[in-house]
Every structure is written in structure tokens, then in C-alpha cells.
């Protein structure tokens, strides 16, 4: 047990180290960008106002030597102070917390949906690798990978905005639903969630179905599958109990590795569907030259990825007992 505790602590330590490294990257970026760092921090708003610039210099200690600034920056950030947005005139951390929920809702729905549907498709395709369905899955995964996610989104917007208007194509809530009951507004959010989540999930359905097919084909050829069949188990028990669990390993690995890509995809999807998440916040921040917010979003997204990686690690150990205690 102490060994396990030690392993957990080590994992958390490494994750914390990564957070520090991300902050260091941010710091480097601010200071390596051309021009006055105060200007970078203030963005265009500060450029006009000398008093604000002076305040920023003093506030961020920009007159002090770099190492000292670095320590101050890390210290502030770890306390949750990611600076102030001069566009919104609010602390960046508040802005981000407002937008975090929608992004997590979008990303998790897309990811979990894609894992379930993609895996199921891959599993079914692996049952008969030469069948028509298996071929369809292969073609679908190629197409799904090659479609630019924002284009998929736009095509869906055209389809549901013009041809078949049954789905909301923008935003997260209907203005007419303001003041509606909890259930009604939750349903409203879910209704708005459908298209963005489908758009974002589609690429991953494509990838996971292909990966699941390959992984299942490999597992189905292994000796313990033969054992399970020799035991008298039916096709479905063999497939879903004995094969799938072992075939999940590469899927979980890829899901963990791709969480960053998923967030990148979310930026584009949020833009297409005006979803009020971190991605649209980042884009607005870019348009408003609001660097503290932009860097805050980057930091926060990186933290999300780090947390996702920790969860991946946990699920590894759950799926494969051989990894426990390692």
C-alpha cells in the first residue's frame, strides 16, 4: 500500500512539474514576443493609456530582473491569479471559469460518445473483417479523418439551418428559454449540444472505429480467446467480455494522447457553432489582443490535458491488472 501511495505521489509530482513547465512556456512567450512585455500584457487597450501601462509595469514587476519576475509570475499563477483581462476588465481566472463548463460539456460528450460508438463499430467490423460492414467502417474512418472539422460543422449548419431546421445551429441556450425551469433549460442546452458534439465527435468516431477494429482483430487471434471458446462461451461473451477489455488498451492510450487535439478541435467547433466555451474566449481574446486571457486559456487547457492524462493512467490500471503497482 505504501508503494502504491508513493506511485500516486510520484504521478502527481510529475503532473505538477508539467504545470510549472507550461507556466514557464507562457512566461517565455510573453518575454520573447517582439515589443514591450507590458504592451503584450495590456494588449491594445493598454497601448493608449500610459497610466495603465505604468500600473501593469508596477503590478507585474516588469522593472525587476527576469528571474525575479519569473518567480513572481509562477507564484501568482499558482495562487490562481492569471492576470486581468483589459478587454473585459475582469480577472482572467473568472472569465475562464465561466467558459470552462461549456467546453468540458462539449469535449466530454464528443469523446465519450466517440469512444462508445467508434469502439462498437470497430468491434462489429472485427467480427467479419472481410464483410461489407467492415469495408464501410474502413472507408468511413478514412473520410472522417480527412474532413476538416470546421468544414463538417459548416456543412451541418447548412443542412440544419437551411434544409432541415430541427436543430439549433448556434449558441448554447435559446433566448426564449430564459427563465424556464431547470429541466427545460437543461434539455435546451442538450438540444444545442447535439450538432457541435456530433461534429467534434465524428473525427474520433472515425479514428476509434479503425483503431478498435485493428486492435480487436489482433486480440481475437490470441491464445486466451481460443481458451474462452474452448470453454464453451458464445461469440458475444468472447467478444465483449474476453476480447474487448484487452483491446481497449490502445484505445485508451490514444484517447489520452489525443485529449489535446480534442481541445484544439473544440476551438474550431466552438467557433463554427458560437458555443460559449474556452475556444471562443480564446478567439475573442486574439481579436481583442487580450494576451492575459489568451495565455490563461492556454494554461487552463494544458491543465485539462494533464488531468485527462492522469485519468488515463488510472483507467490503464483498471483495465490491465498487469500494470497495477507499477
Amino acid at each position: 500500500m505504501t508503494r502504491n501511495l508513493w506511485l500516486v505521489l510520484r504521478r502527481l509530482g510529475l503532473a505538477f512539474g508539467l504545470v510549472l513547465a507550461v507556466l514557464a512556456v507562457n512566461f517565455t512567450l510573453i518575454h520573447s514576443a517582439p515589443g514591450d512585455p507590458a504592451m503584450v500584457i495590456a494588449g491594445e487597450m493598454g497601448g493608449a493609456d500610459e497610466a495603465a501601462m505604468a500600473a501593469i509595469r508596477k503590478n507585474y514587476g516588469l522593472d525587476k530582473p527576469l528571474p525575479e519576475q519569473f518567480v513572481t509570475y509562477i507564484g501568482r499563477s499558482l495562487h490562481g491569479d492569471l492576470g486581468t483581462s483589459y478587454t473585459y476588465n475582469r480577472p482572467v481566472s473568472e472569465l475562464i471559469l465561466d467558459r470552462l463548463g461549456p467546453t468540458i460539456l462539449l469535449v466530454l460528450t464528443a469523446l465519450l460518445g466517440a469512444i462508445c460508438i467508434g469502439t462498437l463499430m470497430g468491434v462489429l467490423a472485427s467480427r467479419r473483417p472481410d464483410s461489407l460492414f467492415s469495408g464501410v467502417v474502413t472507408v468511413f474512418s478514412l473520410i472522417g479523418y480527412a474532413m476538416p472539422v470546421f468544414w463538417t460543422g459548416i456543412l451541418l449548419v447548412i443542412l440544419f439551418g437551411k434544409v432541415w431546421p430541427i436543430m439549433p445551429i448556434a449558441g448554447m441556450r435559446d433566448v426564449r428559454m430564459m427563465g424556464a425551469g431547470t429541466w427545460a433549460s437543461m434539455l435546451d442546452v442538450l438540444h444545442h449540444l447535439v450538432l457541435p458534439a456530433v461534429t467534434l465527435g465524428l473525427i474520433y468516431v472515425a479514428q476509434y472505429s479503425r483503431l478498435a477494429r485493428a486492435s480487436m482483430l489482433e486480440v481475437l487471434g490470441s491464445d486466451y480467446i481460443r481458451t474462452a471458446r474452448a470453454k464453451g462461451l458464445g461469440v458475444w461473451a468472447v467478444t465483449f467480455k474476453h476480447a474487448l477489455r484487452n483491446a481497449m488498451m490502445p484505445l485508451v492510450t490514444i484517447a489520452g494522447l489525443q485529449f489535446g487535439n480534442l481541445i484544439s478541435g473544440a476551438v474550431l467547433v466552438e467557433t463554427v457553432f458560437s458555443w460559449p466555451g474556452l475556444g471562443t474566449l480564446a478567439l475573442d481574446a486574439i481579436l481583442g489582443r487580450d494576451y492575459p486571457t489568451l495565455l490563461g486559456v492556454l494554461t487552463f487547457s494544458a491543465i485539462l490535458v494533464i488531468v485527462a492524462n492522469l485519468l488515463t493512467d488510472v483507467s490503464y490500471r483498471w483495465i490491465d491488472p498487469r500494470l497495477r503497482g507499477r
Binding site: 491464445d223 481460443r226 464453451g232 474476453h242 490491465d320 491488472p321
Partner: peptide
């Protein structure tokens, strides 16, 4: 019949049991 009336054991014990 399988595993009930006729059972089988295999050559590779290292890989014939499900690791999960």
C-alpha cells in the same frame, strides 16, 4: 459440449489465460 464434456488445454500457458 465445449468445456463441459470435452475440454482442451493448450501449448502456451503463458498466453492462454486472459490477462484481464
Amino acid at each position: 459440449v465445449r468445456g463441459n464434456r470435452i475440454s482442451m488445454i493448450f501449448q502456451e500457458p503463458m498466453t492462454s489465460l486472459n490477462p484481464a
